[in-house]
């Protein structure tokens, strides 16, 4: 199953990975090979099979609605590559 160059570029955009031209072609070949391989699953008839999302499926547990502040805002912000006071700062959003 061949994946096109355009699809590679589209997926890279979706995944927010900038992709040099040369890399796009290499990835196209590698991804096509992997997708070819996994297409073997089509040989199985799974029409009546229920999908498994969790290996061990019970109900989800709950938390009581109690506030427990983390209490260290500085620790949350300390790793920020860029900040302004107590905000995380990011480059402006350009819709292109």
């Amino acid at each position: 199953m061949a994946i096109t160059r355009e699809e590679v570029l589209h997926v890279a955009r979706l995944a927010r990975l900038s992709l040099p031209e040369a890399e796009a072609d290499r990835l196209r070949v590698q991804l096509s090979a992997i997708l070819d391989y996994v297409k073997q699953l089509d040989r199985l008839d799974t029409r009546d099979v229920v999908p498994t999302s969790h290996a061990v499926e019970t109900g989800t547990p709950f938390r009581d609605d109690v506030v427990q502040p983390f209490g260290d805002k500085e620790a949350i912000l300390a790793n920020a590559p860029d900040r302004h006071n107590d905000f995380f700062r990011v480059p402006r959003i350009i819709e292109d």
Binding site: H84, F87, R89, R92, I93
Partner: peptide, 14 residues
């Protein structure tokens, strides 16, 4: 959206 900072072109996340 950070406007009041001179020359700055950034957004701030809370």
């Amino acid at each position: 959206h950070e406007g009041e900072f001179a020359g700055a072109q950034a957004s701030l996340a809370d």
